[in-house]
Design a protein around this nucleic acid. Structure first.
Ligand SMILES: [Mn+2]
Ligand SMILES: [Mn+2]
Ligand SMILES: [Mn+2]
Ligand SMILES: [Mn+2]
Lengths: 222, 222
DNA sequence: TATTATTTTTAGGCTTGTCTAAAAATATTC
DNA sequence: GAATATTTTTAGACAAGCCTAAAAATAATA
């Protein structure tokens, strides 16, 4: 047990992973603190420990990046998180807005064999209930094609393939609006004033969603 | 979060629960330490904390008993442990000798809704893969009828309904011997010298098992 | 560029859960 | 029943993770 990785460390690595996914700059101490709802000073402490263990690259005041070993741990945790989310929704019948907090716990269960068997039991899914890609056993992870609902023009047609914001409130709003994964949408009108957009969902009557909504929905044009 | 119960506390409560199941004496500090593979001094510290929280009754040097609140937590944890074991064996195809350590982690996942749904998903099982009774939602738990293989007389017939020792080594031995849950046995001969017993399993040829084995197998006469 | 403002780190301290070594209480044995 | 053995508790310390307050570094602004 010289080098066991704690739940807390896994959560830090996962936060750094997602914060550095897009930007090539290191994750800032403040951003990590915000993400984990903790204080900057706590983050500095932990970063030092992770650097000591060879899981992150860190130079004072310069932001933090994962080493390949750190990335491996982070991706493994993300893989487990998303597989468990699939289990909770597909097998236990939870709503997509109810599974995050439980998966946040389940992702820390330590057993390679369990992950393999769970993956098989679920039919080796490629996406989680929010449309996020599930890393494979080797840690390869598909990147989200960065097309959002807000990028569409009038008369464009598309399918909802994911959500950027996975908060309960947002997911419940989408559920009730009908903007769930797989929904077909057509853009009827874009209101220049506030960038809100009028769309029809599954060929039903038009409804309007704000830009805050349209910029948080991944779509694929058809 | 004034009164959240930690994983560690849950493990202590569970240990005290199982140690006090049969004997009406409180669990001794040393026994708890042995069970949890920790030191007596650590146990004393923790017992004090649990007493403070109203989860155990404790008087110095007198041994420890659960309060009704402590029992509730312990039984809830046992319930989750055993439900997860059923999941691992029935749904993921693990062997009965492989599931204990994983369930030891899964039992700490906090979500009432999860437990309810898991129970339903599994078909509300009454026993875990080792024949141990699963407490119901209200915390009622069937007691093992205390009939062991060693209690049988020559020519008695019985079915294996559980194991007292759930160690990997013992379970693997039973697997290979054919003494799994549901196996029908008939006692052919009891060797007085060392209390070993010759039995036929599922009507096959006789084989001999030691008293250490026969005293760790729960049976039901037929 | 000098002055603010913000970010990050350090200093010091707290809680949880663990340990070893020693003291105190209880049990056992002669 | 006194001496010895065992069990249990206390004393003091440590690592992990967290905090607040203050200092140091960097970024933004005038
Ligand atoms: Mn987590
Ligand atoms: Mn997700
Ligand atoms: Mn446990
Ligand atoms: Mn069991």
């Amino acid at each position: 047990m010289t080098n066991a990785i704690s739940y807390t460390e896994e959560n830090y690595l996962k936060a750094i992973f997602s914060l550095t996914l897009k930007s090539k700059k290191g994750a800032s101490t403040n951003d990590i603190a915000k993400r984990l709802e903790t204080k900057a000073s706590s983050v500095t402490d932990m970063i030092k420990k992770l650097a000591e263990k060879g899981l992150v690259d860190y130079k004072k005041y310069q932001g933090t990046n994962l080493t390949s070993e750190g990335r491996e741990v982070a991706v493994g945790t993300v893989r487990k998180h998303r597989l468990w989310e699939v289990f909770l929704v597909e097998k236990l019948g939870f709503g997509w807005d109810e599974v995050h907090d439980i998966a946040e716990q389940l992702e820390h269960i330590r057993s390679k064999e369990l992950t393999v068997r769970l993956d098989d039991f679920l039919g080796n899914p490629k996406y989680d209930p929010h449309g996020d890609p599930i890393p494979d056993k080797e840690g390869n992870i598909a990147l989200h094609k960065e097309v959002m609902l807000e990028d569409l023009k009038t008369e464009d047609k598309a399918v909802v393939v994911g959500v950027k914001d996975s908060s309960t409130e947002f997911l419940q709003y989408l559920e009730q609006t009908g903007l769930v994964l797989g929904a077909e949408i057509e853009v009827k009108e874009i209101i220049a004033f506030d960038k809100s957009v009028s769309i029809s969902i599954n060929k039903a009557g038009a409804q309007t969603v704000s830009n805050l909504v349209s910029k948080n929905i991944y779509i694929k044009k058809i």
